[in-house]
Amino acid sequence: MVRFKNRYFLCEIISEDPRCRQFIEERTVHNTVKNVVAKMYGDFGLACCSIAFTVKYLNAYTGIVLLCCRKDFYRLLWSSLPFITHLENRNQSCPCSFNTLRVGATIRSCQKFLIQYNRDQLLLLLRSCTNEADREAIQKSLQSCALVGEQPTESKDEEDSDGSTETA
């Protein structure tokens, strides 16, 4: 059995009007990216990228998108992303662009990068903060975005009061 390798694109949707991002759906991003690949590389590029192309994650509030495609053709998709100029949803055209933050081999590597990226963005906000209430809210957000280690599980052996162990 052959395992197909994928590449994951962690992208940020940059728009002038932040209200436009609230109306973005996965279907809209999927269709727009496929149309741009078709425009850049024709039917061949569209067929290559359509084999396993999916939108794995979309956060409309932060504008973060995680795209997945086959490893063999990821350069076609990667080179097409800068040519996205707008997203259309419900007959509304939202001017925007895609900023590729990371190209990773696993979703987990992209998630780790995204946590560190968000942490860095919060640190930048903290430096430019003038209000004490805002400063405390940002510090609380910084503490909440740390990776939490696994809690140690209790062993199956329990100690008696005299120090001997009892097995189940």
Rank of each mutant, 00 (worst) to 15 (best):
L124S: 05
S50I: 07
A47Q: 11
S97F: 13
C110Q: 05
Q143I: 07
D134M: 03
E150A: 11
L123F: 08
Y117W: 14
I138C: 04
Y74T: 01
F53Y: 08
C69S: 12
F44Q: 08
D134K: 08
L77A: 00
C49F: 07
D120G: 11
V148T: 09
T85V: 15
Q139C: 14
K71F: 14
L142W: 07
L81Q: 00
K140T: 15
D72V: 11
I24W: 15
S141V: 02
I64V: 14
C145L: 10
N118F: 08
F73A: 10
H30S: 05
K56L: 11
C49L: 07
I51P: 02
T28P: 05
K34G: 00
N35F: 01
Q116A: 15
D43C: 02
L147P: 09
R108N: 12
K71T: 10
R90W: 10
A137H: 11
S128K: 07
C145D: 08
E136F: 06
A146I: 10
N99V: 01
L81C: 03
C48Q: 13
Q111W: 05
F113M: 11
A38Y: 00
R70D: 14
L46T: 02
Y74D: 06
A52L: 13
S79G: 10
Q151W: 04
F98M: 15
C48R: 14
L147S: 03
N99W: 08
I115Y: 02
N35V: 00
V148Y: 04
F113P: 06
C129T: 11
R119G: 06
R75L: 12
L101T: 00
R102M: 13
G63M: 10
S80N: 02
L142H: 07
L46V: 00
N131W: 02
H30W: 09
V103G: 04
C129G: 00
C49R: 00
S80H: 05
S50K: 09
S109T: 13
F53Q: 08
V36F: 00
L147F: 07
C129K: 01
K34V: 07
A47K: 12
E132V: 04
N59I: 01
T32G: 03
G42I: 00
A47P: 00
H86Y: 15
A60F: 06
C68I: 06
N59Y: 02
T32K: 11
R127M: 02
V36L: 01
S80R: 03
Y41P: 00
K112R: 13
I138H: 07
V65I: 14
N89G: 09
A146E: 14
E88S: 12
F73K: 03
S144D: 15
R70C: 11
V103W: 06
V65C: 06
P82F: 11
R108V: 10
C129S: 10
A146Q: 13
G63V: 08
L126A: 01
S93E: 14
S79A: 12
T28I: 14
G149R: 04
C68F: 00
L58G: 05
R90V: 11
A60L: 04
Y57V: 03
L123W: 06
L66M: 12
C69L: 05
F44I: 12
R135S: 09
L126I: 01
Y117A: 08
C48M: 13
L87N: 10
G104F: 04
